[in-house]
Simulated scan of single mutants.
Amino acid sequence: MSTDPGVSRVSRQEFDALFASVRTWGRWAAADRGAWNRVTPDHVRRAAALVRDGTAVPLGLPWNTRSGPDNSRPALHYMSDLGDVEAPEPATYKDFLGVDYHGKAVSHLDALSHVAYLGQLYEGHVAQEVIGAAGARFGSVAALGPLVTKGVLLDLPAVLGVDWLKPGQPVHAGDVAAAERALGVTVDDGCAVLVRSGRFRRRRKLGPWDVDAASAGLHVDAVPLLAERGVSLLGADGDSDLRPSPVEGIHSPVHVLAVAAMGVPLLDNLDLEALSAACAGAGRYEFMIVVAPLNVPGGTGSPVNPVALL
């Protein structure tokens, strides 16, 4: 892995060729679900066989109501009932939650309506024609439903023997293959790939920073490998994208390739620290993962707290 600022720049022409090479448009009848169509009951049974000691590891961040360099839109949480209104027993206590969850501070799922490239969503739907004030009529998170499949943790700091990857450090295709070998895992058909950079270990040690300006993440040259393996889901403790972007004029090229070209939903801002420790303790980096986004008709995604089961 390199931190050389001049490493592997990609032109728009090269990127467009890459987009065309990984595109899966027209492959599935239930196009709203994209790559989740890959996961069959056999995949679920395979994932269930990976649950051996019964350890359940949640991957979602705490609800983040504090503004900061990596949280420009804090979530809302306030009490709407403090049990102080006279009424028959029992007293009740209620609260309100609200969030603009896309961004860097909330663990969330990106549905297929979240990303358009050159005006088109996955399957070539014109974004302005199918998304309006009432939400998305194609690629809604409600179309996805839950996902249960095999998960693979590519724990890059563990492979490299470091605490974390440096902000701006790229993860290339060769790094993905090397991590598979080192961790004894195989990225294969229908699986969910989680990429750990150590972002939250670094944040807890050194404090927050502007992750839009500099984040470790996948270089676009890693995407064809994931496409060839037939993954159903991609997630990370960042948002999967390397920042600054290596592609001229495109700030989130991995989002474009995964969501708009391949139909692969993304999990952003996962806390993978506990999972890293659990996998190291168990001596294995494959597990069952359960992802159940909120059933929001027209939603472009959902806050989510995925669970890994070892």
Rank of each mutant, 00 (worst) to 15 (best):
L121W: 08
V247W: 13
I289E: 02
H125A: 10
G132P: 03
V152T: 04
G198K: 11
Y285V: 06
R196A: 15
G238P: 07
P74W: 10
G198P: 09
V7S: 15
V290P: 06
P58H: 01
G139Q: 03
D32H: 03
R243K: 12
L272V: 04
D155I: 03
G124V: 06
R38P: 04
G198T: 10
R201C: 11
G83H: 03
D81K: 02
R137D: 11
A260Q: 14
F15H: 05
V259S: 04
A182G: 09
A17D: 15
F287Q: 01
D268C: 12
E129G: 08
C191Y: 08
G103I: 04
R229M: 00
V290I: 06
L183D: 11
A127K: 05
A216G: 13
A277C: 00
R284T: 05
A75Q: 09
G283E: 02
A178I: 05
G135F: 02
V247R: 15
H43T: 06
G174R: 00
A192S: 08
S240W: 08
D95F: 08
G68D: 06
S8Q: 12
L242S: 13
A49M: 13
E123S: 09
P167M: 02
A236P: 09
V171L: 14
P297R: 03
R9N: 15
D239E: 09
W209P: 04
V162S: 03
R27Q: 13
A280E: 05
W63H: 13
V159N: 02
E89T: 00
V211R: 06
D268A: 14
V259L: 05
D175V: 11
A179Y: 07
P253Y: 05
P297G: 03
S140M: 01
S245C: 14
K94Q: 12
T149G: 00
P146Y: 00
P246S: 07
V10N: 11
E123D: 15
V39D: 08
P170A: 15
V148A: 12
G60W: 04
V39Q: 08
A292I: 01
L183T: 09
L121P: 05
S240R: 14
N71F: 06
T24H: 02
F19H: 07
N295S: 10
A278C: 04
P253F: 06
